[in-house]
């Protein structure tokens, strides 16, 4: 195996690992643009992972699974958002509440529906690998770009859609305006809170799909499987300076660091803890370099 093959494998697995990050970051982007700190991404992802898997298991359809994940997560986001906005509660604490609530409710429902609070592994359809047949998976480029399952490509489409929605749509403009200057939006006769709520629901929608992109390809729901990705997505948004393109790039850097560290564990005699720290360290360095460059 040449180093080129290895690099190709790392890139390919980075693109796969990027999927949930990209989707969660796309969701978090809306709340960031609306001027809110949304730490509930984690809980929303978990909700999406569970309901997405449950629906796919019940219906046998991945599309329904993705949809159900998105809807369930949007519903939780709606509840969390309206509590935050209507009660004027602190978004950090309510976000924490959402993150505590998600694993609890999924476990309760998991016990009811599947008879276990632990791993649920059922036969659900495999996500297709739509481009593999056309472009082959033998060449390096084919493996890097065309070997992935459909959710990977869906995430690209959705991320582009999110960028378009935030920059070009009426709703996106309103959300950005709310974040930039809520009182101006109010003065123009709109309710800033309803745009904030819309942003939260959108973040739920995307995070739900992000969660489904964890559980559906795995064919299983594992408690706590979001595993800090919501936080990383939030970091990626900051790293990307709240711009869609740069945020996507940040997600990629993070995913690359992770898949490199997965590879590195087998290669170098470094304690695993240090290797596990690579993504965080890489982000920190990127953040330091990025902002200092911006400052000049």
């Amino acid at each position: 195996m040449t180093w080129l093959d290895t690099a190709g494998d790392i890139l390919a697995s980075a693109l796969e690992a990027m999927t949930p990050l990209l989707l969660a970051a796309a969701g978090g982007l809306f709340t960031e643009l609306a001027g809110m700190l949304n730490i509930a991404l984690e809980g929303l992802m978990l909700t999406g992972a569970f309901f997405g898997f449950a629906a796919a298991a019940a219906s046998g359809s991945l599309i329904l699974g993705v949809l159900a994940g998105a809807l369930a997560s949007s519903a939780v986001a709606w509840a969390y958002g309206s509590a935050t906005l209507r009660l004027k509660a602190n978004a950090f604490i309510t976000g924490l509440a959402a993150n505590i609530f998600a694993p609890s409710i999924t476990a309760i429902l998991s016990a009811v529906w599947f008879g276990t609070r632990s791993v649920v592994a059922l036969d659900i359809p495999e996500p297709a690998r739509p481009l593999q047949a056309f472009f082959g998976s033998t060449s390096i480029l084919g493996r890097i770009f065309f070997s992935h399952h459909s959710l990977v490509y869906l995430s690209w489409v959705l991320a582009a859609g999110a960028a378009l929605l935030s920059n070009r749509s009426i709703l996106g403009t309103r959300i950005r305006a709310t974040g930039a200057r809520a009182e101006a939006v109010a003065a123009a006769g709109f309710k800033p809170d309803s745009y904030k709520l819309a942003a939260i629901i959108l973040s739920g929608f995307f995070c739900g799909i992000a969660g489904a992109s964890l559980s559906l390809p795995l064919g299983a729901y594992v408690p706590a499987m979001s595993s800090g990705r919501g936080w990383i997505a939030l970091v990626a948004i900051y790293l990307g300076n709240r711009r869609p393109g740069r945020t996507a790039l940040a997600c990629f850097i993070f995913a690359l660091a992770e898949s490199f560290s997965n590879f590195a564990q087998g290669q170098f005699g470094i304690p695993s803890e240090f290797i596990l720290a690579i993504p965080f360290a890489a982000t920190l360095i990127a953040l330091s370099l990025g902002t200092s460059a911006k400052r000049v």
Binding site: R168, S169, I170, R176, V185, G189, F190
Partner: peptide, 25 residues
């Protein structure tokens, strides 16, 4: 109450922008 990040035109028309299909600006 001008909104940073939007152009002067967007500020002027804010709230009743002309739109294309699907709610895009």
């Amino acid at each position: 109450m001008t909104i940073p990040g939007l152009s002067a035109a967007q500020n002027i028309l804010f709230g009743s922008e002309p739109r294309t299909a699907f709610g895009f600006l």
